[in-house]
Design a protein around this nucleic acid. Structure first.
Length: 769
RNA sequence: UGGCCCGUCGUCUAAUGGCAGGACACCGGUCUUUGGAACCGGCGGUGGUGGUUCGAAUCCACCCGGGCCAACCA
């Protein structure tokens, strides 16, 4: 299952391929720090990075261990990560890298920065550095070591590398700006001294590069094209680019793009938060089937295909989001439905004596391994005798309305065997049901009901002599609440997240099942043979239950929630009308606002001009040349020009001649130029300056206003889409855009949209026109 | 309190100024030797207020809500 939607990152990659930005190369990377286990959140990144690489001929995805912190990293994590990535279905081929292998080159790059006067050795204490960094609202102050000479910095940094200084005595910092609005840019630390043994390089290095320094340069060294990371690194993009530029990294340089991390309801992925759960014995380990780690998911019985499908379903975007567990569950069931053979399992056995079945008789029924609607085939054997066990949950002494299973005096189908009727309920002294006396209907042998008989319920059963014992572990979500509070995870644990059934029964065919087998125990869910299964002892983990329509009916009481949607509720509460002047805070602003309005600007435009003094000056100058057009001029400035200035194109307000703006506004007001044409002209004016006349001359401003031509196109559209025309006439006004848009498309944007729009409306409203 | 980012059905996500669409969930139906699967149908959304435009989810402004940033972690 592949959901074919191009996300914003794939769009960007396609665009870069078209423009030849990277010479046709597509190189991504997956850069985990080997300090823990990979989890479901990593799966999204894995799918994205490896997915994009696989979608392009020659594309590559590097596996890079980001191992620049010797304190936390271990080889065993590297091995675990490789295993998990392969299991998920991805292959880095020969592209396995380690940031720690770049230490020598990184050191050389640091020297480049020092030589350029862009990095210095700071000998302040950690606390001093922190204090001098300022805060988000307060600028920082320069370190007293900031202006050391090049020689001094070079010497100190060399000695740092030589191991002459103790931990914490010096750091290397970039020299940027201690008052920078972005905290990351306030002279970020590039290197720290750490006399620790690195898992790969032992004691070779007493200094270690920081993430910001190592990451962009590692990307560059590997000639990565698209460096994809999660949203929390947004603020780091600025230092990423700064460093590559200032060390003169070769172009084209890698570029960082951020996407929203995968956050699942009822799940947390923070390694540091998960650790206490493992160490506190709240779970069976990092691979506990309730853990969000890939190892845990695997042990739960979740398949790599299911995880990949879920990632596809979730998509990739920049909006913060929380994903409903139902998506993962859907993906799991969707995959396992095709893969898992069916078997009978009884969790809580209840004895059924078939009083009219001969004491010494027995027979064996054959059941399919997969339902007839599934792809695979095969059969299994089910022995049958006078005594069988059914699940206690499939009997109700006083059945609720709609109950389709066994009840006193009622019938149920023992799947693939017989329809039975319950005649007597036997209880112990405590009133607990101990066995049921039933009779089989011999005419239903094989479980088939004769024509005309409708037996709604069909349940699984097992013959005790042949059934095999198994331990079954029923798993549910680890946490009881969708957003577990990080400060009290233990308190948020779901007490029912694991229920162990020691003496469950499974059908004889499951005997000898080795770890790693998937089953669907009919009507119970999907199960996975745990690694604890050995020496004939069977342990099954419930991966996920089956979708259960009956449970929904039962649990949804009469009071279903029918509250208003969030949006409707919000709309009802807020919604105060705001006038432009109300957005102004000071008296001076309001006074200026009044002046602008009296000069002819609209209130909406005036409120913006009050705040933007550069636009205001252009307004004043242009208005002086076209006084009656003050309103138009203000509007152009506030809407179109602001838009162009905010875009990528390199527009510059200083290039705009006020007189050209005045001329343009006048030309539009007098019908000499359509608004659409004027927008093109405006873009040129902001890019290249000059007069209106010059700008117009350099542009193709052809506009098709010929009614006959427009009419021909519209007639055809209406004839080709009679259902749209009818819907429009029925009140679906939005469809006007379909017809106008069609004309615009056909003319490659050259039709006069106003005329096309008017004509379309006329033709649709009155076909006889 | 500063900077940056983000708000589209309950949830996730499309629509690159031109038909607000898909998936999951939910509801109903058909079918059924799994209250499963499959199939059919339904419900349901552009955070708010103004503005620009022939036309706004998309552009502009303000407001509201959310996230990230002040490790010698990544």
């Amino acid at each position: 299952m592949r959901v074919d939607a191009m996300d914003f990152i794939r769009n960007m990659v396609s665009r870069d391929l078209e423009t030849g930005k990277y010479g046709g190369r597509v190189v991504t990377r997956f850069p985990p720090e080997p300090n823990g286990f990979l989890h479901i959140g990593h799966a999204k990144s894995l799918c994205l990075n490896f997915g994009i690489a696989a979608e392009h001929p020659g594309g590559r995805c590097h596996l890079r261990l980001d191992d620049t912190n010797p304190d936390t990293e271990k080889e065993e994590y590297v091995e675990a990560m490789k295993r998990d990535i392969r299991w998920l279905g991805f292959d880095w081929g020969e592209h396995l890298y380690h940031a720690s292998d770049y230490f020598e080159q990184l050191y050389a790059y640091a020297m480049v920065l020092i030589d350029k006067g862009l990095a210095y050795v700071d000998s302040s204490t950690e606390a001093e550095i922190r204090d001098r960094r300022g805060s988000v609202t307060r600028p920082g102050v320069n370190s007293p070591f900031r202006d050391r000479s090049l020689e001094e910095n070079r010497g100190l940094f060399r000695r740092m590398r030589a191991g002459e200084f103790p931990d914490g005595s010096h750091v290397l910092r970039a020299k940027i700006d201690m008052a920078h609005r972005n905290m990351v840019m306030r002279d970020p630390i590039l290197y720290r001294i750490r006399h620790a043994s690195h898992y790969r390089h032992g004691d070779d290095w007493p200094i270690y590069p920081m993430y910001d320094f190592a990451h962009c340069l590692s990307d560059s060294l590997e000639r990565v094209t698209h460096s994809l990371c999660t949203l929390e690194f947004e603020n780091n993009r600025e230092i990423y680019d700064w460093l590559l530029v200032h060390v003169d990294a070769p172009a084209p340089r890698p570029e960082q793009t951020e996407f929203a991390p995968l956050i699942l309801d009822y799940v947390i992925t923070s390694k540091s938060k998960l650790r206490p759960l493992v160490e506190g014995g709240h779970v069976r380990g990092w691979d506990d089937p309730r853990m969000p780690t890939l190892a845990g998911l695997r042990r739960r019985g979740v398949t790599p295909e299911a995880i990949r499908t879920m990632c596809d379903m979730v998509g990739v975007a920049r909006a913060q989001s929380r994903v409903d567990m139902a998506k993962l569950e859907f993906a799991i069931r969707d995959d396992l439905n095709e893969k898992a053979p069916r078997a009978f399992g009884v969790l809580d056995p209840l004895k059924v004596v078939l009083t009219n079945y001969p004491e010494d008789a027995s027979e064996t029924f054959t059941a399919p391994r997969f339902p007839s609607d599934g792809g695979q085939s095969g059969t299994r054997e089910l022995p049958f005798r006078r005594e069988v066990f059914i699940d206690r949950a499939d009997f109700a002494e006083t059945p609720p309305p709609g109950f389709r299973r066994l009840a006193p005096g009622g019938e149920v189908r023992l799947k693939y065997a017989y329809v039975i009727r319950c005649n007597e309920v036997v209880k112990d002294a405590g009133g607990r049901v101990t066995e049921l006396h039933c009779t089989v209907d011999p005419s239903t042998r094989g479980g088939v009901a004769p024509r005309g008989r409708r037996v709604r319920g069909a349940i699984q059963w097992l013959e005790p002599g042949s059934a095999v014992r198994a331990e079954v572990r029923l798993y549910d979500r680890l946490f009881a609440v969708p957003e577990p509070p990080l400060d009290d995870l233990v308190g948020a644990l779901n007490p029912g997240s694991e229920k162990v059934v020691k003496d469950a029964l499974v059908e004889p065919g499951a005997a000898g099942t080795g770890p790693g087998a998937h089953y669907q125990f009919e009507r119970l869910g999907y199960f996975f043979a745990d690694p604890d299964s050995r020496d004939g002892r069977l342990v099954f983990n419930r991966t996920v239950t089956l979708r259960d329509g009956w449970a929904r009916v039962r649990e949804d009481g009469p009071a279903r929630e029918t509250g208003r949607s969030g949006a409707a509720a919000r709309a009802a509460s807020g919604a105060a009308r705001t006038r432009p002047i109300d957005t102004l805070r000071t008296e001076a602003e309001r006074s200026l606002f009044g002046d602008l309005v009296s000069l002819g600007a609209s209130e909406a435009a005036a409120a913006v001009l009050v705040r933007a003094h550069d636009l205001r000056e252009v307004f004043l100058a242009a208005r002086a040349e076209y006084v009656e057009g003050a309103d138009s001029i203000a509007s152009w400035l506030v809407n179109e020009i602001t838009r162009l200035l905010g875009g990528e194109g390199g527009s510059d307000l200083s290039r705009l001649e006020p007189s050209a703006l005045a001329d343009l506004a006048e030309a539009v007001d007098e019908g000499d130029l359509s608004h659409r044409q004027a927008r093109k002209v405006m873009a040129a004016l902001l890019l290249r300056g000059g007069s209106l006349h010059e700008a117009r001359a350099g542009l193709d401003l052809e506009e098709i206003g010929d009614e006959g031509a427009l009419r021909t196109m519209l007639d055809r559209l209406i004839n080709e889409h009679p259902e749209k025309a009818a819907a429009y006439r029925k009140g679906q006004r939005g469809l006007l855009g379909f017809f106008v848009g069609g004309v615009m498309k056909q003319t490659r944007g050259k039709a006069d949209p106003r005329k096309a729009s008017e004509l379309a409306r006329a033709l649709l409203d009155d076909p006889a026109t």
